[in-house]
Design a protein around this nucleic acid. Structure first.
Length: 772
DNA sequence: GGAGGCCTCGGAAGG
DNA sequence: CGAGGCCTCC
């Protein structure tokens, strides 16, 4: 009875679920029920006598972990909460919280995000008088990151003549030194960056055999999702952990590896076979998601790649519709066509907005799509963009919280020592940092002992610094006895941050204040219910420890995506996102926009064969998101950094066998049927706008204006009325004069007279007009 | 300390 | 073109 759910699986899926002992590799094609197999496998272990805390399951994202965990709970009961399930970073951070003191780190170490890391590098560059042009912080960080992911400490890095020479060749001889300084600075701040969470876990297991043995015995079963996106270091760690029991199960699909540019290593799939010669392989090749046409088209594309594991994805689903090719004259028209189809599909068929997704290669493409959807009042949601916890005001508040927990955290200290303003200027801060660096102690250490360290700071400022230190210390003292919410409120009020934002009555200021309130409510909820957005297993956390601000910070440190936005996801909206973000999702109808050479595939990938193969896998991921209908669209012109450029259809379109398409791929656009939306909506630049009358001072031209010309008299502030009579410059027709207009700000359709070209209907862009 | 000017640069993105 | 960083000026 307890195994009822197994009947929902097909033969290969069931075998993969039931083969729990020994090394197992599951190759799971797109739409083959990969997540289902993984969840059922864990549920199967739980219902067959394995304790949840003996299972470690690693996922690619927090979201995947959360979803899988709740599904396991419905299958196998609340015991599932005790699983060690999460991302590599969250699971390893939890290990490190237990044993970091072995590495001379405190258990309450701070976790630095990428922004913190870059900021450290910037300040090191400044101190070392190095240019951030030759040493771009992102490049330096990437180099350090890749060193750690190849198990190279800064000492080992500097002894590796090949690396040192390649840095010298690249004109960056100081790279090794920067790695050293960066590592030391993180250590002094009692902080780890994302890579340290992996690297230090490795060190812990490598240096301390007792710990290695402890964890090896504890975790009898290991499972790894999205194995194709695992990097070398991650693989080394799980191999170590699995060495005793060798119950290791990896699940992945080489055809969907789209993160090689970030260190993911498909090679791991091959290494697995060598490292575990007696491993079993299960291939999940039946696709349940898509129509036969879509599956076949996807196969015809991916087969162009040389590097791939042999497998044959098939489906028993209906043939379905042919793939629709959409050709547009411009990026804006592409948006219009897509929006029109979405509108009519949901009107005439049994579809609703949430069934649609528009996928694109670059974020910049979203603008034209958004405008088209907005114009038709179609609700949409853009995935990606700035996450809640990345906002300035949130990071400021969190910096206070982090300092209360760990005052040595230099990045947080620098961030808020003079925010709100308390008269500690940049010069003083620089002096303090320099002093800390010379004495090799933390910034906090210097601030607490101003008279001991010779920093050259005057008495008056010393007093201010000491007052700040006293405040932080008082927060720190409250940490142990105050519940998270009360302490957070106390800090928000006594730091002056809340007051600072309360008095800012600009729209942005109000929004920032609201965001802070939202953060405080989240902490309140955490304090009252213990709920955090992160699926952290809590069985080993002492109960009295679980509602402190410290615990809250730990829970959110590794949370970056738009989580706890449950109600957002319930809304009925069209989804807009990059193909990368779409991995793991599925939609009834999918549009892939911008299928043009140099865009998808991106021009940066065309130099390198491997990059092109990854680009093709990306395309494969895009089209396999579709269940029922797939549309591929391309435009003949597109705005790129303000310039209109000509585009050709993507080579990928020609790699699809023509029988799966509704029409041949063609670069000819002449025969395209005009609709009300695609007449002449190419952008024109407004050349002239010296406003007079009522609009003067209300509308301000942003950017350069040329050739001033008289503007019609007007009474209204309505920019639509201002436009008439204006001179515009068009990419194709040159200068013209606006005769009449329709529509609304900021996109106004105008009839324009061009000498030699007659009158044309144009879309005028008013993005350059700012209301003041 | 904040607003505005000038310069640079431009792929995608989890933790 | 537009975002972000840095510099200057008030």
């Amino acid at each position: 009875m307890k195994d009822d759910y197994l009947s929902e699986l097909n033969e290969p899926q069931r075998k993969a679920v039931e083969c729990t002992e020994g090394p197992v590799m599951i190759i799971a094609g797109a739409g083959s029920g990969k997540t289902r197999v993984l969840t059922y496998r864990i549920a199967y272990l739980l219902t067959h006598g394995v304790d949840a805390f003996q299972i470690m399951a690693l996922t690619f994202t927090n979201k995947a972990a959360r979803e899988m965990k709740s599904r396991i709970e419905t299958l196998a009961g609340s015991e599932a909460r005790n699983l060690w399930m999460g991302t590599y970073h969250s699971v390893f951070a939890r290990l490190l919280r237990m044993d970091a003191p072995r590495l001379s780190y405190p258990s309450n170490f701070t976790i630095y995000d990428t922004e913190d890391s870059k900021s450290i590098i910037k300040s090191i560059l400044k101190e070392q008088n190095l240019s951030d042009k030759t040493y771009k912080p992102s490049t330096v960080l990437a180099r350090i990151s890749s060193a750690k992911n190849n198990l190279l400490s800064w000492q080992a890095y500097n002894q590796d003549s090949e690396l040192v020479n390649s840095d010298i060749q690249a004109g960056r001889p100081m790279m090794g030194k920067l790695y050293e300084l960066y590592s030391k600075r993180c250590f002094r701040s009692a902080a780890m960056d994302f890579d340290d969470l992996l690297y230090n876990t490795y060190l812990l297991l490598d240096r301390f055999p007792d710990l290695l043995h402890k964890f090896q015995s504890k975790f009898r079963y290991l499972m790894v999702d999205e194995f194709q996106d695992t990097n070398y270091l991650q693989y080394i760690i799980i191999r170590r952990l699995a060495a005793l029991h060798e119950n290791i199960c990896v699940v992945g699909d080489d055809a969907q590896s789209i993160y090689a540019f970030r260190g993911a290593n498909i090679q791991n799939i091959l290494s697995f076979g060598k490292d575990y010669p007696d491993h079993k392989v299960f291939k999940l090749e039946q696709n349940y998601r898509s129509t036969a046409t879509i599956v076949n088209a996807a196969n015809s594309i991916i087969s162009q790649n040389k590097k791939q594991l042999p497998k044959k994805i098939w489906t028993a689903n209906d043939e379905g519709n042919k793939i629709k090719l959409l050709r547009a004259l411009s990026d804006n028209e592409e948006g219009s066509i897509i929006a029109d189809i979405i509108y009519s599909e949901q009107m005439t068929h049994d579809y609703t907005y949430r069934d649609f997704a528009v996928l694109y290669r670059t974020n910049a493409q979203s603008r034209a799509l958004e405008e088209a959807l907005r114009r038709r009042n179609i609700a949409y949601r853009i995935y990606g963009g700035l996450s809640f916890y990345a906002r300035k005001e949130i990071k400021d508040m969190l910096a206070y919280f982090r300092l209360a927990v760990n005052p040595h955290d230099e990045e947080s200290l620098k961030r808020i020592i003079n925010y709100p303003v308390r008269g500690i200027g940049q010069t003083s801060i620089d002096r303090l940092i320099a002093t800390a660096g010379e004495s090799e102690v933390s910034l906090w250490e210097v601030i607490c002992n101003l008279d001991h360290y010779k920093s050259g700071i005057s008495g008056g400022i010393k007093t201010k610094i000491s007052a700040f230190a006293d405040m932080i210390r008082s927060f720190n003292v409250m940490l142990v006895k105050q519940p998270a919410y009360e302490l957070a409120m106390h800090i928000a009020n006594h730091s002056g941050l809340l007051r600072e934002l309360y008095h800012d009555k600009t729209p942005e200021g109000i929004s920032r204040y609201e965001n802070l309130q939202e953060l405080l409510s989240a902490i309140r909820e955490f304090t009252e219910t213990g709920n955090t957005p992160l699926p952290g297993p809590d069985n080993e956390t002492p109960a009295d420890d679980s509602r402190t601000l410290d615990a809250f910070l730990q829970d959110i440190a590794l949370l970056t995506d738009n989580d706890n936005k449950k109600e957002e996801e319930d809304k009925n909206r069209v989804s807009l996102m990059t193909v990368h973000m779409a991995k793991g999702l599925e939609f009834k109808q999918v549009f892939v926009a911008g299928l043009e050479e140099n865009l998808f595939p991106s021009q940066l990938s065309l130099v390198d064969r491997d990059d092109l193969e990854e680009e093709r896998r990306l395309f494969y991921v895009a089209i396999t998101r579709a269940e029922k209908k797939l549309y591929l669209s391309y435009a003949s012109t597109r705005y790129r950094w303000g310039n209109l450029i000509g585009c050709e259809p993507s080579r990928f379109l020609n790699e699809i066998r023509p029988e799966y398409l509704d029409q041949p791929v063609s670069a000819q656009f002449d025969s395209f049927q005009e609709t009300s939306h695609n007449v002449w909506n190419e952008k024109a630049v407004v050349r002239k706008n010296n406003f007079t009358g009522a609009a003067q001072g209300r509308f301000k031209p942003v950017g350069k204006t040329v050739n001033p010309a008289p503007v019609n008299d007007f009474e209204s502030d309505d920019p639509r009325k201002i436009v008439t009579g204006m001179e515009v410059l068009h990419a194709r027709f040159g200068k013209g004069k606006v005769l009449s207009i329709e529509g609304g700000y900021p996109d106004i359709k105008a009839t324009v007279f061009f000498q030699g070209h007659g009158t044309k209907m144009l879309l005028l862009k008013f993005a350059r007009l700012k209301i003041v």
